[in-house]
């Protein structure tokens, strides 16, 4: 019996028990969630997953890949260029994260309602976000400059910062993964 289930189902019996139990709870709540405009809610539920997986992830992963390619080109192991990628990637990540989370306020999507409800001006958020972004990139740039300067002061430490002109495979210590 167990083997038959395994053959037909492809997973252990516990797997089936867990999922069916979960579907009971999900179904009970889903029936209520979909009691109103069920089609629109379903679009939001499934659409959220699809937009994230098929649009957002390829978009940011692709942008990161492209930027990395442009900066590092044919010298993917140049530590100086990798550092540059990092010092753009991190502030860009934080900035875009803030933009994503606070998009309704920054875009003033509900600006009139916001003003009517809170008596506050809705048009300050874009400027603030730009300012935060500028600060993030400035700090990151200063840290990069400091890093480069400190590495240059230690000549011969190619391990820390090999010359960007050294071709792939010649400037790296042997213990690095090739």
């Amino acid at each position: 019996m167990k083997r038959l289930l395994r053959t037909l189902y492809g997973e252990p019996p516990l797997h089936l028990t867990v999922l069916l139990t979960s579907f009971v709870l999900c179904g009970y709540a889903l029936a209520r969630l979909l009691a109103g405009d069920w089609w629109a809610v379903l679009q939001w539920l499934v659409g959220a997953a699809l937009v994230h997986d098929l649009v957002l992830v390829p978009l940011y992963a692709g942008a990161d890949w492209l930027f990395h390619r442009v900066v590092c080109g044919r010298r993917p192991r140049s530590r100086a260029r990798t550092a540059l990628v990092l010092h753009v990637r991190v502030p860009a990540f934080v900035s875009l994260l803030l933009l994503l989370v606070h998009w309704p306020l920054i875009s003033q999507a509900a600006g009139r309602r916001y003003r009517a409800a809170t008596l506050l001006a809705p048009d300050v958020f874009l400027g603030r976000w730009l300012l935060i972004t500028a600060v993030l990139f400035t700090v990151s740039g200063l840290l990069l400059a400091l890093r480069t300067w400190r590495a240059r002061r230690r000549p011969g430490s190619a391990e820390v910062l090999p010359s960007a002109d050294v071709p792939v495979g010649t400037g790296r210590p042997a213990r690095h993964r090739s």
Binding site: R32, G36, V41, A109, A117
Partner: peptide, 14 residues
């Protein structure tokens, strides 16, 4: 929390 009620229905049940 950002008062942008574009979701399909009342916030509480959703």
């Amino acid at each position: 929390v950002q008062l942008d009620y574009v979701f399909p229905g009342s916030f509480y049940p959703l």
